[in-house]
Each structure stands twice: as structure tokens, then as C-alpha cells.
């Protein structure tokens, strides 16, 4: 084995011996630990501990005032046969199937604004405006629009189209809710896409235009590949958003009904915790929602990593 030339140069003829600790290094490490401590404590106290406590609670029969008893996986077994939970999972599946719309719509609109359609600045403001409204306000607005004697049905009846109970009918309630949430939140994704578009090489677009590239070719071969990391980011953020931020709308617009047509896991968790007074079962539902979100986010991040070559 060859001797380390640097060490040989520095210490000619010296025999290998115990590594010396640089004076003050230990103190530096202590300081570093001290600086890290608040952040670590925050994560442990406000993230790890509640998560662990929630998991423990999900393994108990905590209900009302009674002392919780350990029941193992019984809550999870109950969940498998709970029609309300199964309905909420089915609704989640339908919601996730609409994900391409949540991404494509703001991306296409952002591209058009970026390419300089007339009135682009106005559109940008108008599209973003609902994103600053709370879900309760959005819900109240659309309650007036979508109710049976509301504005939408009045408009439809004017054109001879029969009215529908958009929020009270099992076949339209969830799609109505998704549409309202999309309207309320796509402005944020649009802004993210606009920020991403600002990084697309203008020279390349100009060069392609000089070569006679049409709009679709610009979009498909230059803009879309450049936006891939943004698309993936929006996909992750949107997925988490639709799974965890629809409670307000559900509460105001449909209360989870009719039946279970608009019951999503987060609404069911609230129902079991707040109305049924069953924190143990609600904790088990929360753990499933957490795992579901973590799984989807992990898959999406894996795809992002693969595409960016990390």
C-alpha cells in the first residue's frame, strides 16, 4: 500500500498514530448542536411526536370520555368494512383521475399568457383572484350559483335546458365540487407555470419561430420539455392540496352528501372525531390519509428525480 504523499511530505518519517483532534473542534460541534437544537426540537415536538401519538391513538379504542385501551389493528380492520371509508376512497380515486385537468388547464393558459395573447395581464389577475379567497367564501358564492334555484339553473332554463340539482344529486355533486375547487385554486398553479415559463429560453423560441415553427410545435418541442420539472412540482403540490384542502368547500357546499357522494377522507376524519366522538378511529383514518399522501408524493418525487437525472 503506497504511503500518502501529502502526509509523508508533512511529517517526514512519522509513524501512523492516533488522529489528533483539532483544538476547538469539539467546542465547535457543541455549538453546532446548540444551533440545531431549536429546529430539531420543533420538528420532534410539533411533527414527529404528534404523528407518533396519532399512530398510537389509532391502535386504541379511544371513544368519548372512556380511557383508551390498546386494540391493535382493529380500527384498520373495521375500516376495511366501513362503507363510508370505502366510498371516501372511491371519491379520492375519482378526484385523482381529474389530476391531468388540474395541471393542463393552468399550463395551457399560462403558455398563452406567456406567448402574449392580448389582455394577458388582465387574464393573469382574473385567474389568480379566486386563489386569495377562503374556501368558505368560495363555497358561499357557489352555493348561490349551484343551488337548485340558483344562477346556473336560471341560465340553463333560459336556453330551454332542464335544471339540475348540481350539489344534491349523487351523479353531479362530486364533479361540481371538483370544478369549484379547480376554479378557486388553478390561479396559483398558473402563476407557478408563468414563473417556469420565464426561464424558457427566448432565443430558442425566436429561432424556432424564424424556422417557421407553428404554435403547437413551439409548445410540444420547446415549452413542454422545458416545463417538465414545473409540471412535476405542480402535480405534487396539487395532489396534496386536493386531498387536504377541500374540507371547507365540502362543509359549506354539500356536507359530504348526498349520501357519501362528496365524502372525502378528511371530511370523514372530521365526522368521526368531531361528530361521532371517536378519536381512535379518526386517528386510524388520518394515518391512512397520511400514508396515501406520502405514497403519492414519493412516487411523484421519484419520477421527478429520474427525469432530472438526480
Amino acid at each position: 500500500m503506497a504511503a500518502d504523499p501529502a502526509r509523508t511530505t508533512a511529517r517526514p518519517g512519522a509513524a501512523p498514530r492516533r488522529r489528533r483532534v483539532r483544538p476547538g473542534a469539539r467546542e465547535e460541534r457543541r455549538f453546532a448542536a446548540l444551533f440545531l437544537l431549536p429546529a430539531v426540537l420543533l420538528v420532534v415536538v410539533f411533527r414527529i411526536w404528534p404523528l407518533a401519538w396519532g399512530f398510537w391513538l389509532s391502535l386504541t379504542d379511544a371513544e368519548g370520555l372512556a380511557e383508551p385501551n390498546f386494540i391493535g389493528l382493529e380500527n384498520y380492520v373495521e375500516m376495511a368494512g366501513d362503507p363510508n371509508f370505502l366510498a371516501s376512497m372511491k371519491n379520492t380515486g375519482i378526484l385523482l383521475l381529474t389530476l391531468p385537468v388540474w395541471i393542463m388547464l393552468p399550463m395551457i393558459l399560462a403558455t398563452l399568457i406567456h406567448l402574449g395573447v392580448p389582455g394577458g395581464k388582465l387574464y393573469r389577475s382574473v385567474y389568480f383572484f379566486p386563489a386569495v379567497l377562503s374556501s368558505v367564501i368560495v363555497g358561499s358564492i357557489f352555493n348561490v350559483v349551484l343551488r337548485y334555484d340558483g344562477a346556473l339553473n336560471a341560465g340553463l332554463e333560459f336556453f330551454g335546458i332542464p335544471a339540475l340539482d348540481w350539489l344534491g344529486n349523487g351523479s353531479t355533486a362530486l364533479l361540481s365540487l371538483i370544478t369549484v375547487q379547480l376554479w378557486a385554486t388553478f390561479g396559483m398553479s398558473l402563476l407557478i407555470f408563468l414563473a417556469g415559463l420565464a426561464t424558457v429560453s427566448q432565443e430558442m423560441i425566436e429561432a424556432a419561430r424564424l424556422d417557421g415553427a407553428k404554435l403547437w410545435a413551439l409548445w410540444a418541442f420547446i415549452i413542454l420539455p422545458s416545463l417538465r420539472p414545473i409540471i412535476e412540482f405542480v402535480a405534487v403540490v396539487t395532489t396534496i392540496g386536493v386531498l387536504t384542502n377541500m374540507f371547507g368547500l365540502i362543509y359549506v357546499l354539500t356536507a359530504g352528501g348526498p349520501g357519501t357522494a362528496t365524502t372525502l377522507p378528511e371530511f370523514l376524519i372530521w365526522l368521526e372525531q368531531g361528530q361521532m366522538n371517536r378519536p381512535g378511529y379518526a386517528a386510524a383514518l388520518s394515518m391512512v390519509l397520511f400514508v396515501l399522501m406520502a405514497g403519492i408524493a414519493w412516487i411523484q418525487i421519484r419520477i421527478m428525480s429520474r427525469n432530472s437525472g438526480i
Binding site: 363510508n84 344534491g168 349523487g170 348526498p258 349520501g259 365526522l271 361521532m276
Partner: peptide, 20 residues
């Protein structure tokens, strides 16, 4: 019970809609 009430809320809506 609260469980029966919550389920009656759901079933009553489905009955009105003719979905059950």
C-alpha cells in the same frame, strides 16, 4: 345513537334522490 343519526342523514338523501 349518533351513528344511527349520521347514517339516517345519508340514507334519507339517497331515498329522496331515488338512489336506494
Amino acid at each position: 345513537t349518533a351513528e344511527e343519526l349520521a347514517e339516517w342523514h345519508r340514507q334519507s338523501q339517497l331515498l329522496l334522490n331515488g338512489e336506494t
